[in-house]
Design a protein around this nucleic acid. Structure first.
Lengths: 228, 228
DNA sequence: CTATCTTTGTGTAAACATTACGCATTTATT
DNA sequence: AATAAATGCGTAATGTTTACACAAAGATAG
């Protein structure tokens, strides 16, 4: 018997801005006037590594380049997830910082759009399920890996980092304890820059020091933020 | 262009007994007199869910039924991992308790064998890499999910649980603090049974209460064992 | 039958980490 | 100048982890 299974990749790309979490979706046409929302993705080339396939599809369909990319899960238990063919999908989890939240014009990218996570419509195939799994991963990782910084600009305020954690994890935390905890790690550094907003005391900008973090990792450090 | 990619599943099954961790491997013949060790696995059927494919292959090739099964990772970045065809492999991570550590006779199962993890030979394809990733997953999960109990018999001694943790994580821990920590969770219960070994004070058998654990999970409980 | 060995089971004090707040600081606004 | 808003720093109370002392229960040897 000859195996006849298609292999696709799909990307769940998260972006964050002003206390809101977004997912990158594309609008696809089925037939003449029916449109569906779906995750960016497509079939893998015969000689193409999976990871490159995701990056290519993202580039083609949305013109977005991500800051962070890792494999999420392979969806292949529902044999009829695509009604036309047997297709398994290797889903990837990705993050972009807020500077990339505007779609750059591109042949196909016009159908791409950032949608707030609590306003995601019905998606094609099992894509709602995939997004759900990605959100769980994001929440989990936020507490044990410093991926929150990949969602923020290079220089950020502590209040921004704090509201990012609170909005994504849907929990409250004490501003002052959070700050102390993060600073105690030693890989978030104060910069010279100072933000002036319309109200309140001006705040220092901070930055994530990747090198310092990797060094600490090697010394056996283990990142963790507990949210009650 | 027609996509021509094979989809395989591979299983990394761990077993534990007497302070030793084992992986289930099979001996395969290539050509006439060349033999290779490899992970159990094979191609997925056209109408077969991935998870069922693993279970079928395990049954066929090793006659083993596992206690715990979850998807590990999909290996598909090395385009030439199989030199004959483009094959991507969806790897699964599985556990059996010590009662299943003897291979039951079966047509194909004669080539299956439990090999100690620190004596794993060169394996076919990228299977050494896959096993490595599985070991990392096992170590990580042991600290934040109660999967250690799936490697032990239904009734076990605290000393057995303790040495399991110590051998797999390759670390020492204080016996008394470990016991207190585990018991504080409330899902490991004392039984009436008592073990009499040749030396020392007789020990109570304990058992894992799945129902209690699930109940605690719903109440927001989060399992965690820290190893210095 | 008592001394010794070994493993199990219980307790407790010290060290460390987390939590809950109080309050001074620095700007913009009235 | 007084007020408001957000930032930045400190400290006491509480909770958790670690290190270790020691009693308990059986096996063995003299």
């Amino acid at each position: 018997m000859i195996q006849n299974i298609r292999v696709a990749v799909d990307a769940i790309v998260f972006g964050y801005q002003n206390g809101k979490l977004y997912v990158l979706l594309i609008q696809q046409k089925f037939g003449t006037n029916e449109t569906y929302w779906a995750l960016p993705g497509g079939l893998v080339g015969n000689d193409e590594p999976l990871k490159e396939a995701v990056q290519r599809e993202l580039k083609e369909e949305t013109n977005v380049e991500v800051n962070y990319l890792e494999q999420l899960y392979t969806f292949g238990d529902d044999v009829y997830r695509d009604t036309r063919n047997r297709v398994i999908s290797v889903a990837y989890f990705a993050l972009v910082d807020s500077s990339k939240l505007s779609i750059k014009a591109n042949t196909d990218a016009e159908h791409a759009q950032w949608i707030e996570v609590n306003q995601i419509p019905n998606l094609a195939f099992d894509h709602n399920k995939i997004v759900q799994k990605a959100i769980e991963r994001l929440k989990a990782k936020l507490t044990y890996q410093p991926i929150g910084f990949d969602l923020l600009p290079k220089y950020f305020l502590f209040s921004e980092l704090e509201t990012l954690y609170c909005t994504i994890l849907e929990k409250e935390i004490d501003r002052r304890n959070f700050r102390k905890k993060i600073l105690s790690f030693g890989f978030v550094e104060e910069t010279e820059k100072i933000s002036v907003h319309n109200t309140g005391r001006p705040a220092k900008f901070f930055q994530f020091n990747t090198q310092k973090y990797n060094q600490l990792l090697q010394e056996g450090f283990h990142f963790e933020i507990k949210f009650a």
